[in-house]
């Protein structure tokens, strides 16, 4: 999503861009990266448009500013909406991708997208995620032609980042408001609250929507610490991806536990906590197909 008119004339002049995020902290809903760009010569006018850090503005004000900047032909914008399912899935992969990496990738995706539109980006201002200097180096290596300014609280320092924060925040709020729940159970309501773990509305929504087997609706970011605290209410689920983590840590205890039954000299009853059968102790044909001989079940 982003500005849809063809490439404006000013885009071939040197341009600046701001990047900011909304919905990084919440335990539910999408995380949104937004950017706003304009020509260097428009910068002064931009400063008069009263963009401020989106968090300090009232919702109606943000909505109004977003509509204004969308109508402004001297401004371009784009967003990247990262689905909560994608966030959870990446953070819970076998090779886990952390939130900083996901954030960096999203910001770099926006830079590529705008460059590919043909906009002559010369300076990009980014609100930092993690260490500012390391992040700046990462961005500069990827886009050597652009000067990056990475700073804490960039959204209150640079109007172009304030603008980006409005784009991101309004998009995140709308996405959550219009969220189509995947789940079709009848007792599901939409009083999510802000989505922040500390919000009483969000807390009671989580309480009301936990499910012993499925955990939560997929709107929820399962990889958040907030969800882990609910684990005592949920049925335990074991994954191969997690089992491997433990293997590394307790290699010696694992070896010590290697009994005859484990290597399969005696056909054994399948244990309930086994994630897959093994075919251990049988010929290769069965081993590679994990076909175990069950003498009792």
């Amino acid at each position: 999503m982003g500005s849809e008119t063809g490439l404006p004339k000013w885009a071939s002049e040197p341009c600046i861009m701001g990047i900011d995020e909304a919905g990084r902290g919440p335990v539910l809903g999408p995380m949104v990266y937004g950017c706003l760009y304009c020509s260097v010569s428009y910068q002064k006018t931009l400063a008069t448009l009263n963009f401020a850090d989106s968090k300090t503005l009232k919702e109606e004000m943000r909505e109004e500013l977003f509509e204004n900047l969308k109508a402004d032909e001297s401004i371009g914008w784009a967003v990247d909406v990262i689905d909560p399912r994608e966030l959870s899935a990446k953070m819970l992969k076998k090779h886990k991708i952390n939130l900083n990496e996901i954030s960096h990738d999203s910001a770099m995706g926006l830079v590529s997208k705008v460059l590919n539109l043909g906009v002559l980006l010369t300076e990009v201002y980014v609100d930092t995620v993690g260490d500012p200097e390391k992040y700046r180096i990462k961005l500069s290596e990827r886009f050597p032609s652009i000067k990056f300014v990475v700073a804490k609280k960039a959204d209150s320092l640079y109007p172009v980042v304030s603008g980006a924060s409005i784009v991101a925040k309004v998009t995140r709020d709308r996405a959550l408001r219009d969220w189509v729940l995947d789940e079709t159970a009848e007792n599901i309501n939409r009083n999510f609250g802000s989505g922040y773990p500390g919000d009483p509305g969000t807390k009671s929504w989580l309480d009301d929507h936990k499910h012993s087997v499925f955990g939560f609706p997929t709107l929820v970011r399962f990889s958040w610490g907030t969800c882990t605290s609910y684990s005592k209410h949920l049925v335990e689920v074991l994954w191969e991806a997690d089992a491997n983590d433990e293997d590394g840590a307790s290699e010696t205890t694992r070896k010590r536990q290697l009994k005859l039954t484990n290597i399969g000299f005696t056909a054994s009853k399948m244990k309930t906590e086994d994630i897959t059968s093994s075919g251990k102790g049988r010929c290769k044909f069965f081993q590679s197909r994990k076909l175990e001989l069950l003498s009792e079940f």
Partner: peptide, 15 residues
């Protein structure tokens, strides 16, 4: 691809 330590009915189609 996981072991769910539960044995019984649950609302699969809804979730």
């Amino acid at each position: 691809p996981c072991c769910i330590k539960y044995d019984g009915p649950t609302s699969v189609a809804h979730y």
